[in-house]
Design a protein around this nucleic acid. Structure first.
Lengths: 251, 251
DNA sequence: CGGGAGGTTGACCACCATCAACTGCTGTGG
DNA sequence: CCACAGCAGTTGATGGTGGTCAACCTCCCG
């Protein structure tokens, strides 16, 4: 809602979803030294195989993580939005095992792993919050394995949209009843293991069934319970990083 | 190799792959209070949705983690072998988001999350080793998303086998040139998003191409470089939890 | 000896990929 | 202001990978 949130406010908001933080802890985060950098769409932030010394927090815009198969097929393994620490794993695993790339214009805030480690050592609850975040990340990957391995095309696309919407809501990025999808249909395809053409057909099918209305990338979720049912979506795997759309959740 | 390894020796061996441990640290792990329990094949250790207070270390046999889609389709998201702490995520996320089940007869060692946390607080390097293990877990999930979302059936099955073999080697569970697969073809199918029938065909195809010889579940990898090439397998994503079969790696 | 689980093989078919053509939008330079 | 290029989206025709169904086999164990 508030687009003016600073990068540290965003991070506090995110961590507060995972652990109770007191004023001293919030202050410690606010005092972390971040380097802000504007990023154009498609810019690669971290490349597979590279060594990493900084972690990056997404402040504005959207990004994704992806890996390549030998055939050149790209598999997106995660989407990211404002407030996400996108490469916590690099704090302990020195070599990146995947790429990190902007999908829209945006801003990231770099922070050194050293500084992050120091804050974690001084404030165990902050360390716990980061650890939880990493574990929830893993839970999301498990759900994605199920999604691409075990669901048909319509369900897959619907599920991906549900997760995206639920996470947006949790971070308060925008009202859900009128949002603009940041990703192209090709990117949805790369995330779901489908082709852009088939994603297009599935989106049309979903709107014909009344789950949502969309014109281009403008998306209005007209029937959340229906979308959720089609999607086989249960937010439990997001462990608190999700809010379902408010007015619609119980209808 | 040594099937007589105790549960704590196994855990030390595993953690030593991730962090240098001194004698005091090894002793601290040896003093952890584990409860050993024999488990028959198919026994469910942790059920999705349940609350968890203990973590379990697999001592003997094989297990898997899986989730269910609404349609009843089961998706295996990980295989586990001796030395694996199978549910570290439960130390911070109280509710299980997936099932944990034996696939063969075996033994597990339960340890309370409290005791584990205490050791981690006292020995930062042990904490780091566990954290790395959890992050590598996540890296493996990412690779699985790519595997089921982005590769064709033959490559998928080959990749799954490569990972399994490489992890076995790292834990020294058995010589690779003659091993018995613990999982059924149906379970391989549940892990790769294929049917048992199609897994069967792919296994035949792979052995016709000379990547390995198999009779029933007895598997002899006759040409590791070829299997690896077919599988699009690069062990980097295992971050040190893998050894490629020794004599064959460079041939 | 009988039953059951796992494995193997064949026939058929559906879901989704592929290829291709066309539309609409946006930004850019003449 | 228009022309044009390029990207994203849309729709149709066709085909292949892998699912489904079914039969049968082997092995193990009671």
């Amino acid at each position: 809602m508030r687009n003016q949130a600073t990068h540290t406010e965003l991070l506090v908001r995110k961590l507060a979803l995972l652990e109770q933080l007191d004023e001293a802890e919030k202050a410690a985060i606010a005092e972390l030294s971040f380097t802000l950098e504007n990023m154009p769409a498609h810019r690669t932030l971290v490349r597979e195989g590279s060594e990493v010394t900084d972690c990056c927090l997404l402040v504005k815009g959207f990004a994704c993580r992806h890996k390549m198969a030998r055939t050149g097929k790209r598999q997106i393994v995660a989407f990211h939005m404002a407030g996400d620490m996108m490469d916590l794993q690099h704090s302990l695993l020195s070599r990146a095992d995947h790429n990190l790339q902007m999908i829209t214009d945006g801003t990231v805030a770099w922070v050194s792993i050293k500084a992050l480690t120091a804050v974690c050592n001084a404030y165990p609850r902050i360390a716990r919050a980061f650890a939880k975040d990493a574990l929830i990340d893993a839970s999301i990957f498990r759900e994605w394995v199920l999604n691409v391995g075990g669901r048909d095309a319509k369900t897959r696309v619907a599920h991906m949209l549900c997760e995206f919407v639920a996470r947006r809501e949790a971070m308060g990025i925008s009202p859900v009843d009128a949002m603009r999808l940041p990703m192209t249909q090709e990117q949805i395809g790369d995330a779901t293991g489908l082709t852009a053409v088939h994603v297009n057909r599935m989106l049309r099918l979903l709107s014909e069934e009344g789950a949502f209305v969309h014109e281009g990338r403008e998306l209005v979720i007209s029937d959340w319970p229906k979308l959720k049912a089609i999607a086989d979506f249960d937010a439990a795997y997001l462990h608190g990083l999700a809010h379902e759309p408010r007015e619609m959740a119980m209808s």
